[in-house]
């Protein structure tokens, strides 16, 4: 049923699949995991944007001046957290790491908002056919 050229075509397509798979795996290793979909960390104080970092960077102590004092924000491994905060309840510190798009850490007493913006979610929102 299949001619010789058909078989050659199938082999070629298998090779193409393998090649693109290799390229994708390569891409994941050197791009995807490290750029985190082009996401950014945006930090607001009293509603005004004061700092913006790509999620790729590693910053262990970003000092943010709020009304109560200095909050420290840490970016590491594609995640962000509030390291220390001068606020009384430390809810923002207790929230721990965030990494997804549109996740936020809010410190109401010190009026600091740390938000992950940009990029497109890697998760599927919907499948339409």
């Amino acid at each position: 049923m299949l001619t010789r050229y058909d078989k050659v075509l199938i082999c070629f397509l298998l090779f193409l699949a393998l090649l693109s798979f290799a390229i994708c795996a390569f891409g994941v290793k050197f791009e995807g995991l490290k750029t985190f979909g082009g996401r950014e960390v945006v930090i607001f104080v009293s509603g005004r944007e004061v700092a913006r970092y790509p999620l790729v960077v590693k910053r262990e102590r970003i000092e943010i001046e709020g009304p109560l004092g200095t909050s420290l924000v840490e970016i590491n491994g594609g995640k962000v957290r509030m390291l220390t905060s001068p606020c009384p309840n430390k809810i923002c510190v207790g929230q721990g790491w965030i990494e997804g798009p549109n996740q936020v850490i809010v410190c109401a007493p010190n009026r600091v908002i740390v938000k992950i913006a940009g990029g497109r979610g890697d998760e599927l929102d919907a499948v339409s056919r």
Binding site: L16, A17, S20, C24, D122
Partner: peptide, 11 residues
């Protein structure tokens, strides 16, 4: 990133 589907689609 959509191209990540390519090998599976070909297969």
């Amino acid at each position: 990133g959509v191209f990540f589907q390519m090998p599976f689609l070909i297969l």
